[in-house]
């Protein structure tokens, strides 16, 4: 391939990826707040994973429902 074609592809790849990833980033920000507003997710509760981390503390969200019953 010619060097110029590579350069061009590179530039396009770079621009599109940057735009794409920026959109994803802002989408993620939007998602974080929307999920919390709608009440589907409460992200802040995950901060408690660090605080209540004894082995017999109940997990914030258990991995399997059956596991939760056992605890």
């Amino acid at each position: 391939m010619e060097m110029e074609t590579i350069r061009e592809l590179q530039a396009y790849g770079y621009i599109f990826a940057t735009i794409f990833l920026s959109v994803i980033m802002y989408g993620y920000l939007y998602h974080l707040y929307k999920a919390e507003k709608k009440g589907t997710r409460n992200y802040e509760q995950y901060a408690n994973i660090a605080l209540n981390d004894n082995i017999d503390d109940a997990p914030i969200e258990s991995r399997t429902p059956s596991n939760k019953e056992k605890e």
């Binding site: 980033m25 993620y28 920000l29 974080l32 707040y33 919390e36 992200y43 802040e44 995950y46 901060a47 408690n48 660090a50 605080l51 981390d53």
Partner: peptide, 21 residues
């Protein structure tokens, strides 16, 4: 820091966002 001080992370959402950033 949260564990030692007993304070939950100020904004968990901000921590997620900074991670990807």
């Amino acid at each position: 820091l949260p564990k030692e001080s007993g304070q939950p992370v100020f904004s968990y959402k901000l921590s997620l966002l900074s991670f990807w950033g």
